[in-house]
């Protein structure tokens, strides 16, 4: 494997990793505060991509498309909290997990009922890659990297710099204590689900820009996203992002050794190995975010 080949594999891995990271971020937020793995995250992303494509077709602007996708998906996430997940407080995590799988199926089938199974795509100029020190980098890669960084910073800013973020972390640490000290769960949860929806939307639009928009696009990214959230340490958003990027890199860089069919499996093997050796995740602490 020459250096240039390795470098390009790393670039490809980084891009895949960023997409996993965005999905992992949304999963991790839900894991931290609402305390269950949300299997509907992938279909939130799919919904966002379709919403973005539709809005772009209607307004003619990619930015407007992406913005509407974020707004609509945040609304969808909040609605799913109000209608479904709110009612599981105090029950074992199996119930919301199963319900989130149901929600994932429901969302996808409502989508396909109205728009069918055909492939859609965003309208973006397709440009040749720029060769930079032997590595091919596409303009869209830079966009993706920038957007991911901004999204992560925004989420961290909300969590750590705002009063609602502080309350959110308090709920994540100890829901009973938080309730006892007078934190009203309602506002915290509404903010949380807005964040989850927005992160999923950014992930979905980015995924749609990188690939094509099909009904199963988000669902297919769910398991890697779970892996990232768990590897990053449950309830550690920064950890989920870093773990997502690491998973992408490992997948791409392992291909010269294991071939292309096993590359996804590699990240799952890594997941199982990590859980066995270090159940709190790579970057996790014994307790969620504090």
């Amino acid at each position: 494997m020459s250096a240039a080949v390795g470098l390009n594999l790393a670039v490809a891995g980084l891009i895949q990793g960023l997409l996993i990271a965005l999905a992992g971020l949304a999963v991790s937020l839900c894991f931290a505060v609402a305390r269950f793995p949300n299997a509907a995250t992938g279909d939130f992303m799919t919904f966002a991509a379709y919403a973005g494509v539709a809005a772009q077709a209607w307004t003619g602007s990619l930015l407007a498309g992406a913005a509407s996708a974020v707004l609509l998906t945040a609304g969808l996430a909040v609605a799913s909290y109000v209608l479904v997940f709110r009612n599981f407080r105090g029950r074992s995590l199996v119930a919301p997990l199963i319900a989130s799988i149901g929600l994932a199926f429901l969302l996808r089938s409502v989508l396909t009922f109205f728009v069918g199974f055909d492939q859609h795509s965003f309208h973006v100029p397709i440009a040749r890659a720029i060769v930079f020190a032997g590595a091919r980098v596409r303009p869209i890669d830079l966009w993706l990297a920038g957007t991911s960084a901004v999204t992560l910073l925004a989420v961290l800013a909300v969590l750590f710099l705002t009063p609602i973020g502080r309350r959110m972390r308090a709920v994540a640490d100890n829901p009973e204590l938080a309730r006892a000290s007078g934190i009203r769960a309602r506002a915290v949860m509404l903010t949380l689900w807005t964040l989850i929806g927005a992160c999923s939307a950014v992930g979905g639009v980015m995924l749609g820009l990188q690939t094509v928009v099909v009904p199963e696009m988000g669902w297919n990214l769910l398991l890697p996203a779970f892996a990232a959230a768990v590897l990053g340490g449950v309830g550690n958003p920064t950890g989920a992002v870093l773990a997502g990027i690491a998973l992408g890199l490992v997948q791409a860089l392992s291909t010269p050794l294991v071939g292309f069919t096993y590359q996804t499996a590699i990240s799952f093997i890594l997941l199982i190995a990590t859980l066995v050796l270090r159940p709190q995740g790579l970057l996790g602490r014994a307790e969620p975010v504090r």
């Binding site: 390009n8 670039v11 490809a12 891009i15 895949q16």
Partner: peptide, 20 residues
Amino acid sequence: PVVYEPNRTSYAAELQQALS
């Protein structure tokens, strides 16, 4: 021949191999 998996987000690595 490079055999690739469905549902990937990118086939850049596979392409690099095929075009090597």
